[in-house]
Amino acid sequence: MDLDAFVQTHAREWSRLEQLTRRRRLSAAEADELVSLYQQVATHLSVVRSAAPDPGLVQRLSMLVNRARQAVSGRREPVWHGVGRFFAVELPAALYRAGPATVAVALVFLLVAGASGWWVAATPEAQAGFGTPAQIRQLCDVEFAAYYSENPAASFAGLVWTNNAWIAAQSIAFGITGLFPAYVFLSNAVNVGATGGVMASCGNLGTFFSFITPHGLLELTAVFVALAAGLRLFWALVDPGPRPRVEALGAEGRAMIGIALGLVPVLFVSGLVEAYVTPAPLPTWARIAIGALVWAAFIAYAAVIGGRAVRRGETGDVRRETRGDLDLVAG
Rank of each mutant, 00 (worst) to 15 (best):
W285D: 12
L45T: 03
I288G: 01
L249G: 13
L91S: 03
G271P: 07
P92S: 01
I290K: 03
S270R: 03
A71F: 00
E252H: 03
D325R: 00
N151P: 00
F211I: 09
P279H: 04
P100R: 10
A94S: 08
A229T: 00
A280E: 12
P100V: 10
Q19T: 14
G114I: 08
W285S: 13
D54E: 15
H10P: 10
Y38F: 15
A236Y: 01
A302R: 02
A200Y: 05
F87C: 08
F144L: 08
V89G: 06
D32R: 15
F174P: 05
L20K: 06
R232S: 09
T213D: 05
A31C: 03
N151W: 10
F298I: 07
Q70T: 10
D2S: 10
V246Q: 14
S116L: 04
A128P: 06
V7H: 13
E30Q: 13
L139P: 00
G203E: 01
G206W: 08
D325C: 08
S149M: 02
A11K: 15
P214E: 09
Y147I: 13
A122E: 14
A98Q: 04
G241T: 07
T21E: 06
G331K: 00
L57P: 07
W119G: 01
P244C: 05
V277T: 11
A222D: 11
L233G: 14
A31T: 13
L91Q: 03
C140L: 09
F208I: 04
G178W: 08
L263H: 00
C202N: 10
T322C: 02
S27W: 01
G241P: 02
A31V: 08
Q39L: 15
L91P: 00
T177D: 10
Q138K: 12
G258I: 07
V184A: 12
W118Q: 11
S50H: 11
E321P: 01
G331E: 09
L328M: 12
Y276L: 12
G316D: 05
S46M: 06
I136H: 01
W14M: 12
F6H: 14
S270M: 01
F174H: 07
Q70S: 13
D141V: 07
A226P: 01
P124A: 02
P265K: 06
Q8K: 15
F86D: 06
G196R: 03
R97G: 06
A236M: 07
G197K: 03
L263K: 02
F130R: 06
A146C: 04
D239W: 13
A28G: 11
A251D: 14
E18L: 14
A300L: 12
D327L: 10
A101H: 09
L61T: 09
G258F: 02
I172K: 01
S187M: 10
A229P: 04
L57S: 07
W285H: 13
T284S: 10
S155H: 12
L61P: 00
F144Y: 14
L267V: 05
L328P: 02
T162F: 13
G262W: 08
A194E: 04
V35R: 15
L272Y: 06
F156Q: 09
Q40F: 14
A122F: 02
A146F: 12
A51Q: 15
G250M: 02
R323K: 12
G291H: 07
R25F: 15
V72F: 00
R308Q: 11
F144A: 02
Q39I: 10
M63D: 14
E77M: 10
P78A: 04
A165C: 11
L179Q: 08
E150F: 08
F130Q: 06
D54K: 11
V35M: 12
R12K: 15
T177G: 11
T21S: 05
